[in-house]
Amino acid sequence: MEELFCIGCGVKIQSEDKEAAGYTPRSSIVKAEETGELYCQRCFRLRHYNEIVDVHITDDEFLKLLHEVGDSQALVVNVVDIFDFNGSIIPGLSRFVAGNDILLVGNKKDVLPKSVKDGKVTQWLTERAHEEGLRPVDVILTSAQNHYAIKELINRIDELRCGRDAYVVGVTNVGKSTLINAIIKEITGDKDIITTSRFPGTTLDKIEIPLDDGSYIFDTPGIIHRHQMAHYLSAKDLKYVSPKKEIKPKTYQLNPEQTLFLGGLARFDFVQGEKQGFTAYFDNNLKLHRTKLAGAEAFYDKHIGNLLTPPDAKEIAEFPQLVRHEFTITEKTDVVLSGLGWIRVNGQAKIAAWAPEGVNVVIRKAII
C-alpha cells in the first residue's frame, strides 16, 4: 500500500493505533481520495474543533532532524519569537547546523509597541544571537499572523539559498507553521495548508514545499524547549503566553519591599534600592497585582486561584511551586520569565523573580 502523509503536520498516516501519531480512520482515507485533502485525526480535530490531541515525540527524533539539517548543504531559516527570544533559542543550534548559513527571522513583530523601531530590534536580535554563538547572515522581522514582510522574507530566502534547499527551524510556539502558511499563500495562493495552533508541538514530521528550481523549503517540527511557561499551562490559559495584539506596557512606581504578582503564574519582588518605575511587558489580559513583600507568600497562598489567576481554582493542584531567582541590577535591564514576558528595571536595584519550577528566569540588555 502506498505510504500516505498528513498535509497538515507531515506525519505518516496509519489506521491501527488511535493513540499514536498519524491515526486516521479508514473511512477518512477513502474520502480523501476524492477530495485530495488527507489530514490525520489530530490535525482534523485541531483545525475544526480547536482540540489538541497529545502525541509524544522523543527528543532523539528531534535531534535526528537537527543532524539531518547539519548534514545538508542548505540555508537554515531560524525563526525566533521576538516576544520570547530567550525561550525560543534552540540549544546548541550553531553546533548542529555546522557551516550552513543562518537567516534569523524575528517573528511577532506586531506584538511589540509600535513606537519601537525595526532597526533597533534588528540590532538587538543580532547582539543576542551573537551571545548564543550564532552568526546570522541577515536578520528579518516579520509578523506571520498579519503577513508583515512576508514578500521580503521570501525574496531574502531566495537570494541567500543560492539554489540550495532551505530548512525552517524553531522551537515550539514561535509561530513557525503560521509563517510557513503565509509563505505558501504568498507563493501559491493556497490557504492554511499546515496545521497551526497555540499548542506546543504541532508539526510532527518534516513537510516539503517544492520550489520552481527543484529545491525545497522544509518545515521541521518545533523543537520542544522545556523551560517555557507554555508547558505548564492548561489549554485555555495558553492565550496569556501567546499575545496576538500589541502589548500595552504598564509602569509601576515601586518602593523597596514591594511585590508585583503576575496573575498567579509568577511574582516580582523589589528587594532593595531607590524608589523607581518598573515597566511590565505581558499579555494585556494578564492581571497584575501590587502588594507588600513582607506578606507576599501568605497573600499568594490565600488568593491563588481567585484574585490571582491563572491558574484557576481547579488547576492549582497541578501547578508547580514558584521558585525564587535573585539578581542585582546595575543598568537598564529586562528580567525575563521565559514565555510569559518581562519587566524592565531602569536603575540600580536588588530584585527577585519567582517562576514555576522548570521555567527559566534570565536577565538581558533591555530591548526597549
Results as ranks from 00 to 15, higher is better:
32 A>F: 03
36 G>R: 07
44 F>C: 06
121 V>P: 00
221 P>T: 07
117 K>Y: 10
268 F>N: 11
234 S>K: 11
280 A>P: 01
143 S>D: 02
184 I>Y: 02
339 G>D: 03
119 G>T: 05
239 K>I: 06
287 K>N: 11
227 H>L: 03
282 F>G: 05
348 Q>Y: 00
23 Y>S: 12
139 V>H: 05
25 P>C: 08
341 G>W: 00
28 S>R: 15
316 I>T: 09
314 K>R: 13
107 N>S: 10
62 F>I: 06
240 Y>S: 03
228 Q>G: 11
203 T>P: 01
2 E>V: 14
345 V>R: 00
59 D>F: 12
141 L>N: 05
99 G>T: 02
264 G>F: 14
21 A>K: 12
335 V>I: 14
71 D>V: 07
309 T>Q: 09
258 Q>A: 06
164 R>M: 10
20 A>V: 08
62 F>N: 14
283 D>P: 02
268 F>C: 09
262 L>W: 13
203 T>C: 05
356 P>G: 10
127 E>A: 15
251 T>Y: 00
224 I>P: 00
9 C>I: 04
342 W>H: 13
368 I>L: 10
12 K>T: 12
327 F>D: 12
148 Y>F: 12
202 T>R: 09
280 A>G: 02
262 L>G: 07
255 N>V: 02
242 S>Q: 09
49 Y>E: 14
218 F>A: 01
119 G>E: 10
108 K>L: 02
350 K>M: 14
313 A>F: 01
127 E>F: 09
309 T>W: 04
344 R>K: 12
241 V>R: 02
332 K>M: 07
331 E>Y: 11
268 F>L: 09
350 K>P: 10
28 S>D: 10
59 D>N: 13
88 S>Y: 03
153 L>P: 15
237 D>S: 12
318 E>I: 01
229 M>V: 07
92 G>H: 06
66 L>K: 07
242 S>I: 04
339 G>C: 06
291 T>I: 04
304 I>C: 11
81 D>R: 03
26 R>P: 12
356 P>F: 01
199 F>E: 11
225 H>W: 07
317 A>Q: 11
358 G>C: 07
155 N>P: 00
292 K>Q: 12
295 G>S: 10
101 D>E: 13
63 L>E: 13
180 I>F: 06
52 I>F: 14
281 Y>L: 07
176 K>Y: 02
181 N>T: 05
92 G>S: 04
300 Y>V: 05
248 K>F: 00
66 L>E: 01
256 P>Y: 01
214 G>W: 00
9 C>W: 02
200 P>R: 14
343 I>H: 09
28 S>Y: 10
91 P>N: 06
337 L>T: 14
219 D>S: 04
206 K>Q: 14
193 I>Y: 13
177 S>C: 08
168 V>R: 05
183 I>S: 10
111 V>C: 05
224 I>Y: 13
328 T>C: 11
306 N>P: 03
151 K>V: 13
218 F>M: 01
152 E>R: 10
114 K>Y: 00
19 E>H: 15
220 T>C: 09
213 D>H: 06
235 A>E: 12
142 T>Y: 00
337 L>E: 05
265 L>P: 14
100 N>P: 13
294 A>F: 12
21 A>P: 11
261 F>N: 05
80 V>K: 08
127 E>R: 15
82 I>F: 04
5 F>K: 15
